[in-house]
C-alpha cells in the first residue's frame, strides 16, 4: 500500500468518524449484554462442578451433546422443528403481508385504528393463557367445539388431546393467530413508507389494484421480506417453547407431532437440571441456524447484494 492511497483512505475514514461515534452506545451494549456472556458457550463442553467452579470444571468434549442424537426421537424432533418452522416462515409472512395490504386499503381512521389494535390482542395474551383458551375450545367434555360445533354438524366428539393428526393444523393456526398482528405491523410500516407518487402515477395509467400490488408494493417490501426470512432461517432449529409445550398441554399422546428440539431438551433435563447439557442443546441449535444463514445469505448476495444481511 503506498502513501497516497493510505492518506486517501485516512481521509475517507475521518469523514465517517461521527457515524462510528454514533454507533458506540449500541455496540457497547451488545458487547456487554451479548458478547461478554458468551464465555458461557464453553459450558456446553464441560461437566460443571460447583466445588471446582465453572472455570476449573472438567472438559468433557462432546459428551453433553450425545443425548441429542442417541435417541430414537432424534429424527422426529428434528423433522418437526424444521417443518413447523418452514411452514411458520412462509405462511406467517404471506398472511402478515396480506393483512397489511388489506389494512392499507381501509381509509376510515376509526375502522383502521380498530383493526390495528385488535389484531395485536392475541400477541398480548401469554402463551399459558392461550393454552387455556385453546383448551376451552378443545376440551373433551366441556370444550366449545365438542359441545357446540360438532353436534351441530352431526359429528361425534373428538379427543383432541389424544389425536396427534390434528395438531399440525391446530399449532399452525394458533401460531398465526398469535403472531400475525405483530409481523403485520412491520409490513404496514413498510407499505406506508412507500412513496405515494408511485401509486398515483399507476392510477393515472389505469393500473388495477392487483397490478399495483404486484408491481409496486411487492418489489418495495422485498428487502424486508428477505431480511425476515433470513432471520427466520437462522432460528430454524429453535421453536416457541410455550406453543409446543403449553398449548398441547404436554400431552404425551401428541408427541409424534408436537415434540420439537426445545421440548425434548426441557423434558430430558427436568430431572437432571444439567446446565452443561442445556447449553449444548442451545449451541447445536445456534450452530445449525448459523450455517444455514451463511449459506442462504451467500445465495441472496449472488442475486442482489443490497438485500443480503451482511
Amino acid at each position: 500500500m503506498n502513501t497516497t492511497t493510505r492518506r486517501k483512505r485516512g481521509a475517507r475514514l475521518r469523514r465517517f468518524i461521527p457515524l462510528y461515534i454514533m454507533m458506540l452506545p449500541g455496540l457497547a451494549y451488545l458487547f456487554i449484554n451479548n458478547y461478554l456472556p458468551m464465555f458461557g458457550l464453553s459450558i456446553a463442553f464441560k461437566d460443571i462442578n460447583y466445588a471446582k467452579g465453572i472455570w476449573a470444571s472438567d472438559w468433557v468434549g462432546l459428551k453433553n451433546f450425545e443425548y441429542l442424537f442417541k435417541t430414537t426421537d432424534a429424527y422426529i424432533i428434528t423433522r418437526n422443528t424444521l417443518l413447523y418452522n418452514a411452514v411458520f416462515i412462509v405462511l406467517g409472512l404471506l398472511i402478515a403481508i396480506a393483512i397489511a395490504i388489506l389494512l392499507n386499503e381501509i381509509r376510515g381512521k376509526m375502522a383502521r385504528g380498530f383493526y390495528q389494535s385488535v389484531i395485536l390482542l392475541p400477541y398480548l395474551i401469554s402463551i399459558i393463557l392461550v393454552s387455556y383458551l385453546v383448551y376451552a375450545m378443545l376440551s373433551v367434555d366441556a370444550g366449545f367445539i365438542n359441545k357446540t360445533i360438532l353436534p351441530m354438524l352431526g359429528l361425534d366428539p373428538i379427543s383432541w388431546y389424544l389425536e396427534p393428526k390434528y395438531w399440525p393444523y391446530i399449532l399452525t393456526i394458533v401460531h398465526i393467530w398469535k403472531g400475525a398482528g405483530y409481523s403485520c405491523i412491520i409490513f404496514l410500516a413498510a407499505i406506508l413508507s412507500i412513496d405515494r407518487e408511485y401509486y398515483e402515477a399507476a392510477e393515472l395509467d389505469g393500473a388495477s389494484k392487483w397490478m399495483q400490488i404486484r408491481k409496486i408494493t411487492f418489489p418495495m417490501i422485498t428487502p424486508i421480506i428477505t431480511m425476515l426470512t433470513l432471520l427466520g432461517i437462522g432460528r430454524i432449529f429453535y421453536s416457541d417453547f410455550g406453543l409446543f409445550y403449553q398449548v398441547p398441554m404436554n400431552s404425551g399422546a401428541l408427541y409424534e407431532t408436537t415434540n420439537v428440539i426445545d421440548t425434548y431438551v426441557f423434558r430430558g433435563l427436568m430431572q437432571l437440571g444439567d446446565i452443561g447439557m442445556s447449553a449444548a442443546a442451545g449451541f447445536y441449535q445456534s450452530l445449525v441456524g448459523f450455517i444455514l444463514v451463511l449459506v442462504s445469505n451467500y445465495i441472496v448476495r449472488r442475486f442482489d447484494k443490497d438485500n443480503a444481511l451482511f
Binding site: 456472556p37 458468551m38 458461557g40 459450558i43 437462522g234 449451541f283 448459523f290
Partner: peptide, 10 residues
C-alpha cells in the same frame, strides 16, 4: 448476537 448467546447463568 441473534444466534449465539451465553445463556442465563453467564
Amino acid at each position: 448476537t441473534l444466534l449465539f448467546n451465553g445463556g442465563l447463568v453467564p
